[in-house]
Nucleic acid binder design. Structure first.
Lengths: 137, 137
DNA sequence: CATAAACCCTATAAAATAAATAGGGTTTAT
DNA sequence: ATAAACCCTATTTATTTTATAGGGTTTATG
């Protein structure tokens, strides 16, 4: 399941996607719309900014805005950023690899072999679904 | 990511699958092989038993054994049992439905529409990969 | 140039969940 | 009779997630 962070991020991105004609959008507006704590959402938007998905403008009259086209924001990117690995096991993660404690020998383990296939097929899905898919429904 | 419970369950099932010629296998043997706490593993095997995946024999000389063919044990079943929903949002879960807090109106939300598609495609993968796939590699 | 409005940053606390432990009960081969 | 094994529930501990706190920095505007 997605964490609240990721869910909030998706809601925020959707909100920003729907208000692209405006130059910037306030954190407060998004927070109120979805009943999210202002400060918690702020952290999330900052992460999205550091990841190059959002831009921001400081000072009075500032706010956040989408820096990319919705079609160029795959779900895989958002999920990895806020939730971490998409793979089901750390030992088959492309971006967050770690050895598995329970596994004596990765070369012999049949579980990871299958999980590599699951990861690749899951990635196909999550890399193809983008913010645009959410916006257009 | 899979919880330790699910990982332990997969290791236990793999172990049982590899020892099918023996009538029963002891919890202790599986626990030692993978460095899992005996008691923790016991709870997991009980859940697998209640779910109709394992059988057991009580008393001296007893133990656990696979009650189904490995090809009839899809990963989806094991994951659902130990980890819960496969869907990324509670509001699109087939087996564990709950409304989403952040979502004002499911009919209007574009996120859940996309997540239904992700769920269906993910299920295709996890229902097709079975214990047999793990054993045969 | 003062000020208010907005983003920026780090650290800590609270809540929820996952993982592990504990302690006994029941069954059955020998 | 007894020891070995599964069965069951409750509690504790550890980890992760979620939320809060408190200020710092930037900038449009009158």
């Amino acid at each position: 399941m997605l964490s609240k962070k990721t869910k909030y991020a998706l809601h925020a991105l959707t909100y920003l996607g729907k208000h692209r004609e405006e130059k910037t959008v306030l954190i407060q507006d998004i927070a109120e719309e979805h009943g999210i704590s202002h400060k918690f959402l702020e952290n999330i938007l900052l992460e999205l900014k550091k990841a190059g998905i959002l831009g921001s403008k400081k000072g009075k009259g500032g706010g956040y805005y989408l820096i990319k086209e919705p079609i160029d924001i795959p779900l895989s990117k958002v999920i990895r950023l806020l939730d971490g690995p998409i793979a089901l096991l750390p030992c088959v993660s492309l971006n967050y690899y770690e050895p598995c404690d329970e596994c004596k020998d990765e070369a012999v383990c049949g579980i990871n072999k299958v999980m590599i296939q699951v990861r690749d097929e899951t990635l196909k899905i999550l890399e193809n679904k983008t913010l645009e898919d959410i916006l257009k429904t």
